[in-house]
Computed example of a mutant assay.
Amino acid sequence: MQDTLFDMPEEAPEHAVIARFHLGGDDFGEPDQRSLVFDAERSIGAAVAAAGVGEVDGNEFGGGEVVIYAYGPDAEALFRAMEPGLRMLPFRPAHVVLRYGESGDDVVSERVEL
């Protein structure tokens, strides 16, 4: 008799798309900039969900920039779903890091300028 508990396939490592935008104003950007980010994040989250490629996990404001985090099984598919919404944000300089696997020193990543 086989124990099916040990026959389960391993989960694929989680990939990430991490988008970083420079903001103006104080450390957290201007109120209208934050509003644009929140609107874009909702739109990007809906696109990611509709494509079934992962989830947008939130943002982090500080140090004159905002970072938007998203996770899923395929960083390239996740970025394809997110890219139109990310490119619509007017803040520059900006870039995205596609991380192919769990966070760690030896994980492969790719930087894309927006």
Rank of each mutant, 00 (worst) to 15 (best):
G58Y: 01
G58L: 07
G58Q: 03
N59G: 12
N59L: 09
N59P: 01
N59F: 06
E60R: 14
F61D: 04
F61C: 11
F61V: 13
F61Y: 12
F61G: 05
G62N: 06
G63S: 10
G63A: 11
G64N: 05
G64P: 08
E65D: 08
E65L: 14
V67H: 00
V67D: 02
I68S: 04
I68L: 15
I68M: 14
Y69H: 14
Y69A: 10
A70H: 02
A70W: 00
A70I: 06
Y71N: 13
G72H: 01
G72N: 08
P73A: 14
P73V: 07
A75N: 05
A75V: 11
A75I: 08
A75D: 04
E76I: 12
A77K: 14
L78G: 12
F79S: 08
F79K: 08
R80V: 15
R80S: 15
M82T: 08
M82K: 05
P84W: 03
P84K: 04
P84C: 06
G85N: 05
R87Q: 14
R87E: 09
R87D: 05
R87N: 08
M88W: 00
L89M: 09
L89S: 07
P90M: 06
P90V: 11
R92L: 12
R92V: 13
P93M: 02
P93F: 03
P93W: 00
P93V: 12
P93G: 11
H95S: 15
H95A: 14
V96A: 15
V96N: 03
V97G: 01
L98F: 03
L98M: 05
R99S: 07
Y100N: 10
Y100V: 11
G101S: 09
G101K: 07
G101D: 04
E102C: 07
S103T: 09
S103L: 13
G104C: 06
G104L: 01
D105T: 11
D105W: 04
D106T: 13
V107M: 02
V108R: 13
V108P: 00
V108N: 01
S109D: 08
S109R: 10
E110H: 13
E110A: 08
E110N: 09
